[in-house]
Design a protein around this nucleic acid. Structure first.
Lengths: 159, 159
DNA sequence: ATAATCTTGATTTATTTTGACCATGCTTTA
DNA sequence: TAAAGCATGGTCAAAATAAATCAAGATTAT
């Protein structure tokens, strides 16, 4: 049995197929109407099927002429790369190792210096929050760091 | 379908493109007439799209031969730009506003699409941690988000 | 049986559009 | 040259529109 969520998700995918652009724009209200559901269902579909982790970015605007824009990020072998990263980063990583990894990626021109800087700032910020605000134990911080680093690298690989 | 506000805003941008000066002058009444709207709509366009936060300054004069002059700001150096960013983000910012700001910066080629993506992923990660792990109230999340966003933008401005 | 996923609707937030009323600066006229 | 009149632009708030959030309930999968 197909859930409505799946049906709507599939429909959105066909919009991408038909559009040969890497982004589509839609109206939440109209879409909900088309599928006879409440508008917030659309949010659920987007949250569960079109997240950044799944290779999509979403912009939206409320009010008159409101819209939802879904952008699909380009990517060759996402799964393979993600697996590779899983090995590379693992489920926990020290700040040092994270930095070393970023340097290596920059050396190999996988990321630019600015991108490395940006990644390091974000990781550093996570560190500070985890330490000062929440008083997390080191292993927990290593875990959160690994999660963030993988998200960053996966997303960049999509472009 | 585009909102009138967007159409008018885009039109004003083309005026800048065509003018190769950093300022343009226009008549509120004529512009409103051209787009078939009430004059105060023009004020709304200016307020929402050409604010100082967005890098524009406006002068105007009422009465006969009245006018509206829009000036585009330029920044002398990195420090000045960084300071501007501090003002821009403030001490708290919503996820939406943060995203909008990033979009604007990308539109103006201040950051690349990849850099925007990276920033968005980091901010989203922060959001998820703050929400799911630590159960922070919205205001606190807005604060942490502002901190991170400023760190990111300031660091990039240094480059 | 329990956890995960999906569905729903009430409430909140954001954006745009419109209009009534206010302020200011030329221009004309007494 | 002062007053009156006209031509502009500004402000504010209400109405219209539309998306986001949140939590509770329903369903499905393990």
């Amino acid at each position: 049995m197909n859930s409505l969520t799946k049906v709507i998700g599939d429909y959105i995918v066909t919009l991408f197929d038909d559009s040969d652009s890497s982004e589509i724009v839609l109206s939440r209200k109209d879409l909900a109407q088309k599928f006879g559901c409440v508008p917030s269902q659309i949010n659920y579909v987007l949250r569960s099927r079109f997240s950044p982790e799944q290779g999509f970015l979403i912009q939206s605007q409320r009010g008159g002429h409101g819209f939802i824009r879904i952008m699909q990020l380009r990517f060759a072998d996402c799964d393979e790369y993600a697996e590779h990263l899983e090995d590379l980063v693992g489920s926990a990583i020290s700040e040092q190792d994270a930095r070393r990894l970023l340097v290596r990626l920059q050396d190999r021109d996988v990321i630019t210096p600015r991108e490395r800087l940006l990644a390091e700032v974000s990781i550093r910020n996570l560190e500070e929050n985890g330490r000062a605000l929440f008083d997390l134990p080191p292993y927990k911080r290593d875990t959160l760091r690994a999660v963030l680093l993988k998200k960053i690298l996966v997303s960049l690989a999509m472009f």
